[in-house]
Design a protein around this nucleic acid. Sequence first.
DNA 1: GCATTTGCCTAAAGCCTGTAGGAAACCTAC
DNA 2: GTAGGTTTCCTACAGGCTTTAGGCAAATGC
Lengths: 189, 189
Amino acid sequence: MARAGLTPQRLVAAAAELADEAGLAQVTASAVARRFDVKAASLYSHIGGTDDLRTGVALLALREMADRVAEALAGRSGRDALAAFAGAYRDYAREHPGRYEAARLPLDHETAVASAGVRHSQLARAVLRGYDIAEPDQTHAVRLLGSVFHGYISLEAATGFSHTPVDSDASWQWTLDRLDALLRSGSIG
Amino acid sequence: MARAGLTPQRLVAAAAELADEAGLAQVTASAVARRFDVKAASLYSHIGGTDDLRTGVALLALREMADRVAEALAGRSGRDALAAFAGAYRDYAREHPGRYEAARLPLDHETAVASAGVRHSQLARAVLRGYDIAEPDQTHAVRLLGSVFHGYISLEAATGFSHTPVDSDASWQWTLDRLDALLRSGSIG
DNA sequence: GCATTTGCCTAAAGCCTGTAGGAAACCTAC
DNA sequence: GTAGGTTTCCTACAGGCTTTAGGCAAATGC
């Protein structure tokens, strides 16, 4: 019988596609096996199991997002950098909702420190360099940026902010403006 | 054989406890049945199934949170109201992580409009009354508040913001201060 | 060309969901 | 208090997913 050519990478990639198409909950060993026309048991020599698969998607998503954000940030500073930073996350979440969902999975400490997660906070700090904020305010500001953007993206995905006539893009721009102003005044307070 | 006294309410209440203790993923018909020393099949005359159970927890959480926030807000305004509003959510999420998780489940439109979800945005608008912000900025501000607090709570739950020596409570206070300032200037811009 | 390694298979046990139909407990009302 | 009806929980079962164990065939290397 012909071999399917399974590898951890290919399995995780398929899991990521599946997550984007059907949601992270649909990412199962069974479903991924089906994509390769292979029995579910065959996956277990390549990956640890369903949890492993989802963690793999999470790590992939963190890497891809960090890459995108880094590229978006190149050569920009100030409000420009802020918008690029935020936009990169928002665009990624829209294009890859399942991967974005996976990126919020809790990782054990060891996996987390080895992940691209650390690059994300470095990138946030890079944005803040344009605002001249010293510690510990810089750490507070990193947390604020993470909170606002993750919160916005997650609420937008859940509800689409569709209960009022006010456009979501308008709220996004308004938020960026206000954050920019907030961070500018941040160097004073 | 003695009857267990199952009702949709009691089942949802047990599901909520289970969610807080073990996470929303552990909320299954099977697990809830075990709590009542009853076979899983017995649940199906009271609830639709596992999804129903989780949705029930979501609706319960939305109600409980709205009640708490409303109480926290009573008699306060300005930065005081802002802190009470945010604190009520954060405290609830810490006490009831599983319920909080459930509250973010996507609900179909019909269920959503009948839920306590609408009270939440009304409460946010009540906070903003202390800041004198007109439409459409008020809607933008409601979304900002939702984003910041939900984002912060969710990141705090995931990582505990434990990778740096800076205290999470300090970042929370800093964030409240900055938001208060932002909203104050909001009436101008 | 043969031995070894690797990859995918079948088999099977365990748990979860959800449906169907049965029997016991409860309620009502005579 | 007891007969009828209803409700509640049960057993049985079908189907799906997970994961382990052991086997045969394909690829690889000498």
